[in-house]
Protein backbone atom coordinates (compact mmCIF):
# COMPACT_ATOMS: atom_id res chain seq x y z
CA UNK A 1 0.00 0.00 0.00
CA UNK A 2 1.28 3.47 -0.80
CA UNK A 3 1.81 5.97 1.99
CA UNK A 4 -0.84 8.65 2.49
CA UNK A 5 0.21 12.09 1.22
CA UNK A 6 -1.32 13.63 4.35
CA UNK A 7 0.46 13.02 7.64
CA UNK A 8 -1.73 11.77 10.53
CA UNK A 9 -3.31 14.28 12.89
CA UNK A 10 -1.43 14.22 16.21
CA UNK A 11 -4.09 15.96 18.28
CA UNK A 12 -4.78 19.42 19.64
CA UNK A 13 -1.50 21.06 18.59
CA UNK A 14 -2.00 19.99 14.97
CA UNK A 15 -5.64 21.10 15.01
CA UNK A 16 -4.67 24.51 16.37
CA UNK A 17 -1.88 24.91 13.80
CA UNK A 18 -4.38 24.01 11.09
CA UNK A 19 -6.84 26.58 12.39
CA UNK A 20 -4.17 29.31 12.44
CA UNK A 21 -3.07 28.30 8.94
CA UNK A 22 -6.63 28.55 7.63
CA UNK A 23 -7.34 31.79 9.48
CA UNK A 24 -4.09 33.72 10.12
CA UNK A 25 -6.03 36.57 11.68
CA UNK A 26 -7.17 34.40 14.57
CA UNK A 27 -3.59 33.99 15.76
CA UNK A 28 -2.93 37.71 15.36
CA UNK A 29 -6.06 38.51 17.32
CA UNK A 30 -5.09 36.11 20.12
CA UNK A 31 -1.63 37.61 20.32
CA UNK A 32 -2.56 41.27 20.39
CA UNK A 33 -5.78 41.23 22.42
CA UNK A 34 -4.17 41.14 25.90
CA UNK A 35 -1.67 43.95 25.23
CA UNK A 36 -4.36 45.89 23.42
CA UNK A 37 -6.62 45.61 26.45
CA UNK A 38 -3.81 46.65 28.72
CA UNK A 39 -2.58 49.56 26.61
CA UNK A 40 -5.89 50.63 25.19
CA UNK A 41 -8.11 50.37 28.20
CA UNK A 42 -5.96 50.51 31.32
CA UNK A 43 -3.21 52.83 30.14
CA UNK A 44 -4.97 55.12 27.69
CA UNK A 45 -8.03 55.07 29.91
CA UNK A 46 -6.16 56.38 32.90
CA UNK A 47 -4.38 58.90 30.70
CA UNK A 48 -7.78 60.08 29.51
CA UNK A 49 -9.01 60.33 33.09
CA UNK A 50 -5.95 62.39 33.93
CA UNK A 51 -6.57 64.69 31.00
CA UNK A 52 -10.16 65.07 32.09
CA UNK A 53 -9.10 65.98 35.63
CA UNK A 54 -6.84 68.73 34.30
CA UNK A 55 -9.89 70.50 32.87
CA UNK A 56 -11.53 70.65 36.31
CA UNK A 57 -10.63 73.18 38.92
CA UNK A 58 -10.46 73.36 42.69
CA UNK A 59 -12.64 75.57 44.84
CA UNK A 60 -10.11 77.75 46.67
CA UNK A 61 -12.15 78.02 49.87
CA UNK A 62 -13.49 74.53 50.34
CA UNK A 63 -10.68 72.68 48.54
CA UNK A 64 -13.29 70.59 46.73
CA UNK A 65 -12.79 69.65 43.05
CA UNK A 66 -15.37 71.40 40.88
CA UNK A 67 -16.26 69.02 38.07
CA UNK A 68 -16.93 71.64 35.43
CA UNK A 69 -14.94 72.21 32.25
CA UNK A 70 -12.54 75.13 32.65
CA UNK A 71 -9.09 76.23 31.42
CA UNK A 72 -8.48 78.00 34.73
CA UNK A 73 -6.21 75.24 36.01
CA UNK A 74 -4.04 75.41 32.90
CA UNK A 75 -3.94 79.17 33.39
CA UNK A 76 -2.45 78.58 36.82
CA UNK A 77 0.54 76.86 35.21
CA UNK A 78 1.54 80.25 33.84
CA UNK A 79 1.92 81.78 37.30
CA UNK A 80 5.56 82.76 37.85
CA UNK A 81 6.25 80.11 40.51
CA UNK A 82 4.79 77.32 38.37
CA UNK A 83 6.50 78.55 35.20
CA UNK A 84 9.78 78.41 37.16
CA UNK A 85 9.16 74.77 37.95
CA UNK A 86 8.41 73.94 34.32
CA UNK A 87 11.41 75.81 32.94
CA UNK A 88 13.72 74.36 35.59
CA UNK A 89 12.58 70.83 34.74
CA UNK A 90 12.87 71.46 31.02
CA UNK A 91 16.40 72.86 31.35
CA UNK A 92 17.46 69.97 33.57
CA UNK A 93 15.96 67.37 31.22
CA UNK A 94 17.59 68.93 28.20
CA UNK A 95 21.03 69.19 29.80
CA UNK A 96 20.82 65.65 31.22
CA UNK A 97 19.86 64.36 27.76
CA UNK A 98 22.65 66.27 26.05
CA UNK A 99 25.25 65.08 28.55
CA UNK A 100 24.03 61.48 28.31
CA UNK A 101 24.28 61.61 24.52
CA UNK A 102 27.77 63.13 24.59
CA UNK A 103 29.07 60.69 27.21
CA UNK A 104 27.16 57.72 25.86
CA UNK A 105 28.06 58.02 22.19
CA UNK A 106 31.72 56.96 22.40
CA UNK A 107 30.77 54.06 24.66
CA UNK A 108 28.00 52.96 22.29
CA UNK A 109 30.26 53.44 19.27
CA UNK A 110 33.01 51.35 20.82
CA UNK A 111 30.57 48.60 21.74
CA UNK A 112 28.95 48.56 18.31
CA UNK A 113 32.10 48.76 16.23
CA UNK A 114 34.94 47.14 18.08
CA UNK A 115 33.69 45.02 20.98
CA UNK A 116 33.50 41.34 20.04
CA UNK A 117 32.83 38.18 22.01
CA UNK A 118 34.01 38.56 25.58
CA UNK A 119 34.34 42.35 25.34
CA UNK A 120 30.75 42.57 24.17
CA UNK A 121 29.67 40.68 27.28
CA UNK A 122 31.78 42.99 29.44
CA UNK A 123 30.08 45.96 27.77
CA UNK A 124 26.56 44.68 28.38
CA UNK A 125 27.40 43.74 31.96
CA UNK A 126 29.01 47.12 32.59
CA UNK A 127 25.96 48.95 31.25
CA UNK A 128 23.34 46.73 32.85
CA UNK A 129 24.96 46.02 36.20
CA UNK A 130 24.04 49.40 37.72
CA UNK A 131 20.41 48.68 36.79
CA UNK A 132 20.42 45.58 38.98
CA UNK A 133 20.81 47.53 42.20
CA UNK A 134 18.03 49.62 43.69
CA UNK A 135 17.58 53.07 42.33
CA UNK A 136 17.25 54.49 45.86
CA UNK A 137 20.50 52.88 46.98
CA UNK A 138 22.31 54.44 44.05
CA UNK A 139 20.86 57.89 44.71
CA UNK A 140 21.74 57.78 48.42
CA UNK A 141 25.22 56.53 47.54
CA UNK A 142 25.61 59.57 45.30
CA UNK A 143 24.41 61.83 48.11
CA UNK A 144 27.31 60.54 50.23
CA UNK A 145 29.79 60.83 47.39
CA UNK A 146 28.75 64.42 46.67
CA UNK A 147 28.37 65.55 50.28
CA UNK A 148 30.64 68.21 51.76
CA UNK A 149 32.34 65.48 53.82
CA UNK A 150 32.25 63.10 50.83
CA UNK A 151 34.96 61.56 48.74
CA UNK A 152 34.92 64.18 45.99
CA UNK A 153 35.59 67.09 48.32
CA UNK A 154 38.21 65.01 50.14
CA UNK A 155 39.92 63.96 46.90
CA UNK A 156 39.89 67.51 45.53
CA UNK A 157 41.35 68.87 48.77
CA UNK A 158 44.06 66.23 49.03
CA UNK A 159 45.41 66.87 45.53
CA UNK A 160 45.14 70.61 46.04
CA UNK A 161 42.23 71.15 43.67
CA UNK A 162 39.82 72.23 46.40
CA UNK A 163 39.79 75.73 44.96
CA UNK A 164 38.50 74.35 41.64
CA UNK A 165 35.59 72.64 43.36
CA UNK A 166 34.86 75.85 45.28
CA UNK A 167 34.93 77.80 42.03
CA UNK A 168 32.45 75.37 40.46
CA UNK A 169 30.18 75.58 43.48
CA UNK A 170 30.37 79.37 43.40
CA UNK A 171 28.77 79.40 39.91
CA UNK A 172 25.58 81.42 40.17
CA UNK A 173 22.34 79.50 39.65
CA UNK A 174 23.75 75.99 39.51
CA UNK A 175 26.23 76.08 42.43
CA UNK A 176 25.53 75.74 46.11
CA UNK A 177 26.90 74.93 49.51
CA UNK A 178 28.13 71.50 48.43
CA UNK A 179 27.70 69.29 45.37
CA UNK A 180 24.93 67.35 47.10
CA UNK A 181 22.93 70.51 47.64
CA UNK A 182 23.37 72.03 44.17
CA UNK A 183 21.82 71.64 40.74
CA UNK A 184 25.18 70.36 39.51
CA UNK A 185 24.77 67.45 41.95
CA UNK A 186 21.20 66.75 40.81
CA UNK A 187 22.37 66.84 37.21
CA UNK A 188 25.29 64.47 37.89
CA UNK A 189 23.01 61.91 39.54
CA UNK A 190 20.41 62.17 36.77
CA UNK A 191 23.09 61.60 34.12
CA UNK A 192 24.47 58.62 36.03
CA UNK A 193 21.11 57.00 36.59
CA UNK A 194 19.72 57.41 33.07
CA UNK A 195 22.90 56.89 31.04
CA UNK A 196 22.24 53.18 30.27
CA UNK A 197 18.90 54.08 28.70
CA UNK A 198 20.77 56.33 26.28
CA UNK A 199 23.64 53.97 25.51
CA UNK A 200 21.63 50.85 24.69
CA UNK A 201 19.42 52.24 21.88
CA UNK A 202 22.37 54.19 20.47
CA UNK A 203 24.46 51.05 20.40
CA UNK A 204 21.66 49.14 18.69
CA UNK A 205 21.35 51.75 15.94
CA UNK A 206 25.12 52.11 15.48
CA UNK A 207 25.40 48.36 15.14
CA UNK A 208 23.14 48.48 12.11
CA UNK A 209 25.45 50.88 10.26
CA UNK A 210 27.53 48.68 7.94
CA UNK A 211 31.29 49.24 8.00
CA UNK A 212 31.24 49.53 4.20
CA UNK A 213 29.22 52.72 4.54
CA UNK A 214 31.95 54.36 6.60
CA UNK A 215 34.53 53.07 4.15
CA UNK A 216 32.52 54.47 1.25
CA UNK A 217 32.50 57.88 2.91
CA UNK A 218 36.24 57.81 3.46
CA UNK A 219 36.79 56.42 -0.03
CA UNK A 220 34.96 59.41 -1.49
CA UNK A 221 37.28 61.80 0.30
CA UNK A 222 35.58 62.52 3.61
CA UNK A 223 37.62 63.17 6.75
CA UNK A 224 36.67 61.40 9.98
CA UNK A 225 34.75 64.47 11.09
CA UNK A 226 32.80 64.69 7.83
CA UNK A 227 31.99 60.98 8.00
CA UNK A 228 30.73 61.44 11.54
CA UNK A 229 28.52 64.40 10.66
CA UNK A 230 27.21 63.20 7.30
CA UNK A 231 26.95 59.45 7.75
CA UNK A 232 27.35 58.12 11.30
CA UNK A 233 25.29 60.70 13.13
CA UNK A 234 22.31 60.73 10.72
CA UNK A 235 22.22 56.94 10.68
CA UNK A 236 22.52 56.72 14.47
CA UNK A 237 19.92 59.45 14.95
CA UNK A 238 16.91 57.16 15.47
CA UNK A 239 18.85 55.52 18.31
CA UNK A 240 19.89 58.86 19.77
CA UNK A 241 16.27 60.05 19.63
CA UNK A 242 15.04 56.81 21.22
CA UNK A 243 17.62 57.20 23.99
CA UNK A 244 16.78 60.86 24.45
CA UNK A 245 13.09 60.00 24.83
CA UNK A 246 14.08 57.85 27.79
CA UNK A 247 16.47 60.31 29.43
CA UNK A 248 14.25 63.31 28.71
CA UNK A 249 10.98 61.86 29.93
CA UNK A 250 12.51 60.00 32.87
CA UNK A 251 14.15 63.21 34.07
CA UNK A 252 10.97 65.21 33.59
CA UNK A 253 8.90 62.78 35.61
CA UNK A 254 11.33 62.04 38.42
CA UNK A 255 10.62 63.39 41.90
CA UNK A 256 13.02 61.36 44.04
CA UNK A 257 16.46 62.44 42.82
CA UNK A 258 15.87 66.19 43.18
CA UNK A 259 14.41 65.54 46.62
CA UNK A 260 17.48 63.65 47.84
CA UNK A 261 20.25 65.44 45.97
CA UNK A 262 19.88 69.13 45.19
CA UNK A 263 18.32 72.34 46.35
CA UNK A 264 14.86 72.92 47.74
CA UNK A 265 13.70 74.27 44.36
CA UNK A 266 11.04 71.94 42.96
CA UNK A 267 10.76 70.00 39.72
CA UNK A 268 7.54 68.95 37.92
CA UNK A 269 7.58 65.47 39.49
CA UNK A 270 7.80 66.93 42.98
CA UNK A 271 5.07 69.46 42.20
CA UNK A 272 2.73 66.69 41.03
CA UNK A 273 3.59 64.58 44.06
CA UNK A 274 2.86 67.37 46.49
CA UNK A 275 -0.23 68.71 44.69
CA UNK A 276 -2.01 65.37 44.56
CA UNK A 277 -0.88 64.39 48.06
CA UNK A 278 -0.59 67.04 50.71
CA UNK A 279 -2.32 69.83 48.78
CA UNK A 280 -5.10 67.67 47.40
CA UNK A 281 -5.19 69.76 44.24
CA UNK A 282 -5.74 66.93 41.72
CA UNK A 283 -6.66 69.22 38.78
CA UNK A 284 -3.42 71.23 39.00
CA UNK A 285 -1.42 68.03 39.53
CA UNK A 286 -3.05 66.66 36.37
CA UNK A 287 -2.33 69.86 34.46
CA UNK A 288 1.31 69.65 35.55
CA UNK A 289 1.43 66.01 34.44
CA UNK A 290 0.22 66.99 30.97
CA UNK A 291 3.18 69.35 30.51
CA UNK A 292 5.84 66.61 29.97
CA UNK A 293 3.52 64.88 27.50
CA UNK A 294 3.16 68.09 25.50
CA UNK A 295 6.88 68.78 25.64
CA UNK A 296 7.63 65.26 24.37
CA UNK A 297 5.15 65.69 21.51
CA UNK A 298 6.74 68.99 20.50
CA UNK A 299 10.21 67.44 20.80
CA UNK A 300 9.33 64.45 18.62
CA UNK A 301 7.66 66.53 15.94
CA UNK A 302 10.71 68.81 15.82
CA UNK A 303 12.96 65.77 15.58
CA UNK A 304 10.83 64.38 12.76
CA UNK A 305 10.90 67.67 10.90
CA UNK A 306 14.67 67.80 11.36
CA UNK A 307 14.95 64.49 9.53
CA UNK A 308 15.93 62.41 12.56
CA UNK A 309 13.89 59.45 11.33
CA UNK A 310 14.95 59.61 7.67
CA UNK A 311 17.28 56.67 8.18
CA UNK A 312 14.50 54.45 9.53
Amino acid sequence: MSRSAILPNRGLADRLSALFWRRPRVLLLLLITPPLLWLGVVYLGSLGALLLQSFYSIDEFSGVVVEEFTLKTYGELFRAANMDIILRTLTMSASVTLASAVIGFPVAYFAARFARGRWKAVFYLGIMLPLWSSYLVKVYAWKLILAKEGIITWAADSVGLGFLLDAVLALPGVGGNSLSTSFIGTWLVFVYVWLPYMILPMQASLERVPVSMLEASSDLGATRGQTFRSVILPLAMPGVIAGSIFTFSLTMGDYIIPQIVGTSARFIGQAVYQLQGTAGNIPLAAAFAVVPILIMLVYLSLAKRGGAFDAL
Binding site: S212, M213, E215, S218, T223, P234, L235, G307, A311
Partner: peptide, 27 residues
Protein backbone atom coordinates in the same frame (compact mmCIF):
# COMPACT_ATOMS: atom_id res chain seq x y z
CA UNK B 1 41.88 56.28 1.83
CA UNK B 2 40.31 59.74 1.65
CA UNK B 3 43.44 61.22 0.06
CA UNK B 4 43.94 58.57 -2.62
CA UNK B 5 42.65 59.32 -6.10
CA UNK B 6 41.07 55.89 -6.07
CA UNK B 7 37.36 55.18 -5.72
CA UNK B 8 35.52 51.98 -5.02
CA UNK B 9 32.26 50.37 -6.09
CA UNK B 10 31.46 48.26 -3.04
CA UNK B 11 30.10 44.77 -3.18
CA UNK B 12 27.00 45.76 -1.19
CA UNK B 13 27.04 49.17 -2.98
CA UNK B 14 27.16 50.95 0.44
CA UNK B 15 24.79 53.70 -0.68
CA UNK B 16 23.83 56.08 2.10
CA UNK B 17 20.21 55.18 2.88
CA UNK B 18 19.33 58.57 4.41
CA UNK B 19 20.30 60.51 1.29
CA UNK B 20 18.57 60.56 -2.05
CA UNK B 21 20.35 59.39 -5.18
CA UNK B 22 21.51 62.89 -6.11
CA UNK B 23 23.06 63.52 -2.70
CA UNK B 24 24.68 60.11 -2.78
CA UNK B 25 26.34 60.83 -6.10
CA UNK B 26 27.24 64.37 -5.04
CA UNK B 27 28.80 63.14 -1.79
Amino acid sequence: PNRRSVNTVFQDYALFPHMNVRDNVAY
